[in-house]
Each structure stands twice: as C-alpha cells, then as structure tokens.
Design a protein around this nucleic acid. Structure first.
Lengths: 237, 237
DNA sequence: TGCATTGGTAACGATAATGTCACATTAATA
DNA sequence: TATTAATGTGACATTATCGTTACCAATGCA
C-alpha cells in the first residue's frame, strides 16, 4: 500500500508472524509468502521494497530463488536479506555472492532484523534512523503518521499521505499513473487513472500551506506523457 | 519514553511474583518471562522500559542474554538490572562489564529492588523519580494511580487510565486501534476495534473536566485512517 | 441481594475522504 | 496559429471513517 513494503518469505508461519509483528510496530507494511513460487507473483505485482528470504524452503531453495531474482532485470534491484540457520553459516558466503544485501542467522533477534532493514532502507532511501523522511523543507514522520512543511504540521487525507510517503521513498524517478495505483492504492483495486491526477493535485495543494509559505508542491513534477516524479531538485534535470 | 513496563525474566515463578507484587504496588506494569527465549519476543513486541534479569536461567545464561541485548543497537538502550545469587558475586563484575545498569544479589528485599529501579528511572527517563508523568497541564501519578489536570484531580475508569498511561509514555506516535488493543488491553483478548474509539472518547471527556478548565483531550489526536496519537504539541509543532 | 461502577457493543448522525466527471488550461505539433 | 492531446481544477455524489450516545452484561461492594 505504501512505501516500505517488506515481503517475508518463509515456510514457517510463526516466524513470519513474529517478523511481521516486529516490523509493523516500526511502521513497515508486510507481505507474506510461504514459498518461492508464492513469492514470485507477489514480488512482480506488489514490488516490495525489501525481501526477507529464508534459506530453507520446501520448493525452491533460498539460494536458487535469490539467484533467480538477481538474474532478472526487473527484480535485480530489490534488496534481499537472507535468514540462515547457524548450521548453514558457510552458506552465507554463497548468499552474499549471489547478491543478497545482508543476512541474519537464526535464531535471530528481531531487533537485529529491524536494524538491518532500517540500515538498508536508509541506504536506498532518504530515511533517517528514526523513521523520518526528510527532503528539503519537507519532513514526513512515519511513526507519528504526519507531515511537516517548514516545521509546520500540514494535514492531508490518507491517500495523499501514502502517495507522499511513496514518493519520498522513491525520489527522482517517474512513475506512471498505473504504477502509482499499484504502489499506493494496491494492485488489486480498479480505479480510473485520472484519479491519480486529482490526488496529485490535492497533495500539491496540501504541501502549499500558507500564502507566504514555501510551496513544496513543486517537488512533485509532471512528466508529460509518462506520469509524475518526486524530486528534490527543481525543474531542471 | 518512561518507565512503566518492567519485564521480569526469571525461571522461578515465586520470585517473579514477589517482584511483580512489589513493583505493581509502586505503579509499574509488569511483564513476565521464564526464560531468555520467552523474553526475546516480549522485548520486541512490548518494548519494556526496563528488564530485570536473573543470572541463572535454564536455556541461555543471563550473561549471554545480556550481551546479546547490549550488542544490538535497538535493545542496547533498554536498562537491565541483574539478579545474582550471593555465591555468584564475582559474576557481578562480568554483568556490569557486559552492560548491566545495576545488580541485586538474592535474597533481596523488595524495597531494594524498587529503590534501584527508581534510581535508574531518575537517571535515564524523563519521568520524575516519584512516578509522575507530566505533559503540559497533564500529570499522571503512577503511585497514586490518579490523574491531574491543572493540579485538579480527575476521575476515570481503569481502562482510560491505562490508555492514558500508555499514551503519555509513548508520545508523538500514531497507534492503530489494533496496536492499542495489544498494548493496553493485552495481546490475547478479543474486543472490537471500535471499542477503542469509545474509550478514547471517555478519556477525552475525562480530560476536559470543567466547562472553563483546560481541554487536555486535545492531546489525543485522531489520525484518520490510521488510529490515534498522543502529542503534547498542538497543530503547529 | 441491591446498587454503583465499569466495560463492550450496536446504532445513528456528523464529518472527512474518495472517485469520477465536466470543463478549463496548458503543452506539443504541424 | 490552429489543432489535438495531456493535464489542471473545481464540484458532486458516494462511501468510509469517526464521534457520540444509549444500552446491557459483568463485576465489585455494601
């Protein structure tokens, strides 16, 4: 639904639930899959920001699945964290070779998982350690679920909030209306593409609070014929 | 943010109960775990403000567990008090080396435990040493189990009190109804999510005592589509 | 037992959010 | 410039969410 979607791939439901619980408390949205075959369509459809992948799975091994992801252009860029049992320590090398971004050995401390995830999120996004997305005068507090423009609280609807959260997490890249619907609304709802325009409009409006205030709506740029882009840089680019 | 939840990790139930009793008399909420493996998920889910850790435990030794907590960025800051038998006096050094904030040797007087906990409270938390949570005109007395608005006693039901206590201990953060049910009601009870709304209403009402009095209900903000948030700052930071 | 307090739920009205349309405006192209 | 496609904008009906009240069950206490 929004920025910071984490897909948890593990055949053991309790482990998935524990990870999910811990991550949700930190403001992440979680998707689950109990096998590689179940995970693949989810990755394609939902495009999670991160995959937490168990090493041992019933159908395809974690390593094979990882290799497959890293071979495909469309999934290559998605960061992956591997979960390995202690007895599989040597597999870590293989995992990292195959393109995993990090690994954690089981039994693991959930806090550790969260730390690593946040580290990776920080690396790929502008997120700070405490759940703050900051771009220019714009600040989005994921924990407090609120947005500040020039240190001043601004109000917006949930959809505008999710839209902004997604944009701030994926800056400098143009997204088509269809992609935005998938990422922000969810891939299994049907709404008109033009609806995106209206919400973009509402978001821009919300980010231009006072008459004298800074117009942060400029961060959202129209890419004619393609969609919209959030960028800290202004018109040039 | 404040000391209210204390996790007691000990394999002996009578000891846990004794500590629990003493702490609850002082206004603390207690969580219990009889082993390190049981304690970990609780620490992640509930994020206690303090851990009272027995030195001798069946699965992982207290020292190992402590080291584990202190190695992780996200659990490092949680203060830990070690319980050691007299015959393990030399282990105290190890414990303090590993990052314990204090220790108490068994058999101990409950008063002693409470004093140490309060000392740690004073040292680390925002809370005053007297068990007071203060935000603006709002003051929650954990010892007296009562709430003051503008130095005037207000009455509310136990649930509203717990809700407020949780909120005041975790300000500036939005919680979903499900999370509030977990944190305030307990994670294994089933009640309707809308019930939260009603108690929020009752709490707000209780915090708006007189017609002329300050409306402290404003501290509790509705985050549409997400839940509720307690925040000292008003609309404009 | 009778009464008071508290907790959970349902119901209903108020309010905010959503999706869609019609029309205005802007940009691209010939 | 004329034309066309793409986007901006305001308004509207519908829906979802929230606030509030009322009610009943459970509990505790005299």
């Amino acid at each position: 639904m929004s920025f910071q979607k984490v897909l948890i791939v593990d055949d053991e439901a309790p482990i998935r639930e524990m990870i999910k619980l811990a991550l949700e408390l930190e403001g992440f949205t979680c998707l689950q899959a109990q096998s590689a075959s179940e995970a693949l369509p989810i990755i394609v459809d939902q495009r999670p920001d991160l995959v937490v992948l168990d090493w041992m799975m019933p159908d395809v091994s974690g390593l094979d699945f990882l290799r497959r992801l890293k071979r495909d252009d469309n999934t290559r860029e998605i960061p992956v964290i591997m979960l390995t049992a202690k007895t599989e320590e040597n597999s870590v090398v293989n995992g990292l070779d195959a393109g995993a971004d990090d690994y954690i050995s089981k039994p693991f401390r959930p806090r550790e998982l969260i730390s690593r995830i946040q580290a990776i999120m920080r690396r790929i996004s502008k997120m700070t350690g405490d759940g703050l997305l900051v771009v220019g005068e714009l600040c989005l507090d994921m924990k407090g679920h609120c947005v500040f423009v020039d240190d001043q609280l601004v109000t917006m609807g949930p959809t505008e909030y999710n839209l902004l959260k997604f944009f701030m997490g994926h800056p400098d890249r143009a997204y088509s209306r269809a992609q935005l619907l998938d990422q922000v609304w969810g891939s299994n709802v049907y709404v008109e593409e033009r609806t995106v325009d209206v919400h973009i409009r509402r978001l821009r409006k919300a980010l231009k609070p006072a008459a004298d205030g800074v117009d942060c709506g400029r961060f959202i740029q129209t890419v004619r014929g393609a969609g919209y882009r959030f960028s800290a840089r202004l018109a040039s680019l």
